[in-house]
């Protein structure tokens, strides 16, 4: 399949099989998917449809059983585990439903965690981390540990961590799933702003229709197959 110049990530013929209870479950079966540069892509669908698997594969956290994944000029399906880790550090920022902050580190230190993998010096790392926290409106909470923050604040710190290294794309797995409506809206505001004002590419798995409405494109999955595509103009 030819890809346009705006295409950032290309998944071709992706098959992923999990073994559950001794039985093989084919979560993705020959999936093709492009992610455009600068888009906020929402992946929707019932549980078990393969949404999170797509994110994990796109972010190099998991490997497909068949098919290829290219992000930019790199075919990540050819990389070794350690090469993939290095690639993740440079190109991907993850946001998880459960926030996944390191509890013993402060907000600033959590955001600094991926920056430690860059060649930046100590002062620059701190500046980058503070800037990222400022973008999510939490600079005044940077010395707080995760336990001292609300769920919404934790997720905003997680977003700051995801964007601190200025990655090629941000992958968000149910970013509003554990949040109340107000907190969820605040998080969605930030994600929308990152796309609209900073040109970030975000792929987001969600069950939340309000989140999907913020997307520039929405894909529906059912049993590992794309069944419907839609575009919105809200981002």
């Amino acid at each position: 399949m030819a890809t346009g110049p705006e295409t950032l990530a290309r998944m071709r013929g992706i098959t992923k099989v999990y073994s559950r209870g001794g039985q093989d479950v084919r979560v993705l079966d020959g999936l093709d998917l492009d992610v455009g540069s600068g888009e906020l892509l929402a992946l929707m669908g019932p549980s078990g449809s393969g949404k999170s698997t797509i994110l994990n594969l796109l972010g190099g956290l998991d490997r497909p059983d068949a098919g290829t994944i290219e992000v930019g000029d790199t075919e990540i399906t050819r990389l070794s585990s350690d090469e993939l880790a290095g690639w993740r550090a440079r190109h991907v920022g993850f946001v998880f439903q459960a926030f996944n902050l390191i509890p013993v580190l402060t907000a600033l230190e959590n955001v600094e965690l991926p920056l430690l993998l860059t060649p930046l010096g100590k002062k620059q790392r701190r500046e980058h981390a503070e800037y990222a926290l400022e973008l999510v409106g939490l600079k005044d909470r940077m010395d707080h540990r995760p336990k001292q923050l609300s769920g919404g604040q934790e997720q905003r710190v997680a977003i700051a961590r995801a964007i601190a290294t200025d990655p090629t794309m941000v992958l968000a797995d149910e970013p509003t799933g554990d949040l109340d409506r107000a907190s969820a809206d605040a998080v969605l505001d930030i994600l929308s702003r990152l796309v609209a004002e900073h040109g970030k590419t975000i792929a987001m798995v969600t069950h939340d229709p309000a989140a999907a409405r913020r997307a520039t494109r929405t894909l529906h999955l059912e049993k590992g197959v794309l069944v419907e595509q839609g575009t919105t103009s809200h981002a």
């Binding site: 956290l61 350690d82 880790a85 996944n100 965690l113 991926p114």
Partner: peptide, 15 residues
């Protein structure tokens, strides 16, 4: 274990 997952997702290698 989850923290190990976080470190790996952020880009830390096995070593």
């Amino acid at each position: 274990t989850r923290e190990v997952g976080i470190l790996m997702s952020v880009g830390y290698r096995r070593f």
